[in-house]
Simulated assay, not measured.
Amino acid sequence: MLHQYLKDAILELKNLIELTRRDVADLSEAKNEEIFQRLPQKENLIKSFEQKKSMIDRSMVELRDKNPSKSLSELLDQEALDLLDELKLSLKELKDLNAGYARSVYAVNEFYTSLLRKIIPHESSGYGGHAKPQQSFLTIQV
């Protein structure tokens, strides 16, 4: 069963990677609606991956408990070790992709925030330096 859990987890990671790549491409073209439509699918894949990871952990603990004198690398066959390596590489790829995506989202957010502040004058208020729209500007426009 361990092999199947590993294969399923890798498949879910690859699907998450593909969806994230599509998000990056859609972000650059300002296709926000498509990004938001993929969110439930990504959330389901993440939950499913977490369940598979839990089953992988449980299987490995059971294997180790049955053979306490051996290391885990001695207990796993070559296919399981190869699948674990592939899982690790997929996780790293997803992490790197998400880091780049997060930087892009932050840059877009900063762009729109600065644009909004140029269009609607803001005044700084209080200790936190939080900017809020000038009320006089808004009432004049109304």
Rank of each mutant, 00 (worst) to 15 (best):
Q135T: 12
K132A: 14
P133N: 14
D23S: 00
K88S: 10
M1Q: 00
Q41L: 14
L39A: 13
F36W: 09
I140W: 11
G128D: 12
Q4Y: 10
L45A: 01
I120R: 11
N32T: 11
F49N: 02
L115M: 07
L89K: 09
D85Q: 10
S104A: 15
P133C: 10
H130F: 14
I46Q: 05
E50H: 04
K52Y: 15
I140G: 12
A107K: 05
A30G: 04
K118I: 10
D85H: 12
E110Q: 15
L16R: 03
K52C: 08
Q141D: 06
Y127N: 12
L13W: 02
T139R: 09
L81T: 06
M60L: 15
L76M: 05
K92I: 14
D77H: 03
H3S: 08
G128K: 03
K14V: 06
S73W: 08
L97W: 01
G129T: 04
A102R: 06
E123G: 03
K42R: 12
G129F: 08
K132F: 12
K47M: 11
E43L: 13
E33M: 05
N15W: 02
V142E: 02
I140D: 15
L75W: 09
E79H: 02
S48C: 02
E62V: 01
Y101N: 15
A9V: 05
L84A: 02
S125V: 14
Q141Y: 08
E93D: 11
Q141T: 08
H130C: 07
A30T: 08
T20W: 06
L83G: 01
K70N: 07
S54V: 05
Y112F: 15
N109M: 12
L45W: 08
K66Y: 05
H3I: 11
K70E: 10
V108C: 04
L116G: 07
L76Y: 06
F49E: 01
Q51E: 13
K66I: 04
R21E: 14
L138F: 04
K66R: 15
H122S: 13
H3A: 12
G129V: 10
D26F: 12
I119R: 06
L91S: 10
P133W: 05
D82T: 12
L72P: 00
P40A: 13
R117L: 05
E18P: 00
S71P: 00
L84R: 09
L84F: 03
K31H: 09
K14C: 03
R21H: 10
L27S: 08
Q51S: 09
E43Q: 14
V24T: 10
E34T: 07
M1A: 00
L94Y: 09
N109D: 15
R21K: 11
E43C: 05
L2F: 13
V142L: 03
D77N: 13
S104L: 10
K132W: 02
E29N: 05
N98I: 01
N32G: 12
P68S: 03
E50D: 05
R38N: 14
L76R: 05
L76H: 03
Q51G: 06
N109L: 07
